[in-house]
Each structure stands twice: as structure tokens, then as C-alpha cells.
Computed example of a mutant assay.
Amino acid sequence: MKTLKTLLAGVMLSGFASFAVADANPLSVHVLNLQDGLPSSAVTVTLEKKDGETWQALNKGVTNEQGRISELYPQGKALEKGLYRVTFKTGEWFAKHEMKSFFPEVPVIFEVDGSVPHYHIPLLLSPYGFSTYRGN
């Protein structure tokens, strides 16, 4: 029988391993539906970087069963300082669920200043409102 110390060590190591995987990509997003409190799977999300007066497309993804995209930043590319825009295609998601929505998409513009290695953008969503914040 394993000792409590051995079990705790295994839990701690597996926890650290999951942090290492999450930190491998510098940008993740999460969408939760406030109407029912559940994750919003199958939300299309785009990522762009501001280049002068225009936005340059960098990547696109779709949220998983937990409403997450854990690796939205392009693989193998270093995160650069600057302005970024994550756009959640919420109108498409609500239409798929046969619900009306006031917001066809939710753009979130944020600044990468290099002060942290990982940026997390959660979106709390309802048909007629939303909230977002800098997560971790």
C-alpha cells in the first residue's frame, strides 16, 4: 500500500506536469455560458496581432468540451509584445443552439507587455451580455 507521502508526491508531480503543458503555449481562452453555467464547446475563436493600422491573422481554433482552447498562439512562435485581438464568434454559437443573441461576436483587445509568460482570456457569455478579464 502506498504511503500518504508517496500519493501526495504523485499528485504534486502530475499537477506540475499539467502546469508545464499549459505554459508551453503562451495564450489560452475559456468560454462559459452564464445562462446554464456550463462550458461553451464549439465556439470559433480567432487571434490577430495589430501591425500598424491593420490586424494580422495569426491563428484560429474551436473550444473543446470544457469550453477551452489551451494553445491558441501559433506553435513554435515566440510571443511578441504588442496589441492582440481575440474574437469569439458568439453569434454562430448561439445560432447553432437555436438561441437569439445581441452580440454576433465578442472582440477582446489586450496588450502583451512581456511581464508574464502566459496570457489567459476567459469569456463569460449570455445572449445579451458578456464579461471578460485577465485570467491565469
Rank of each mutant, 00 (worst) to 15 (best):
L79S: 11
T46N: 07
N59Y: 08
S115Y: 06
P104T: 07
D23M: 09
L32M: 12
K49T: 05
V21E: 09
G67P: 06
V62P: 02
D23I: 02
Y119M: 06
I121V: 15
G114K: 01
Q35W: 07
R85E: 12
S41W: 05
A22K: 14
F19R: 06
T6S: 14
D51P: 03
K60G: 00
T132E: 06
S115E: 14
K60I: 06
H30L: 15
E111F: 05
L123H: 09
V29F: 03
L34W: 02
P127W: 09
G67D: 14
V43F: 10
V106F: 05
K77S: 13
V31L: 03
L7S: 13
V108P: 12
F130T: 04
E98Q: 13
G15L: 11
F102E: 10
Q56E: 15
G10F: 08
H97V: 08
G114F: 00
M12T: 08
G82Q: 03
E53K: 12
L32H: 00
P26G: 11
F19K: 13
R68N: 13
M1L: 15
P107Y: 04
Q66E: 12
D23R: 09
L47G: 01
S28A: 15
F103Q: 02
W93T: 00
A78G: 00
D113P: 00
G10K: 11
G129E: 11
G135T: 02
A57F: 13
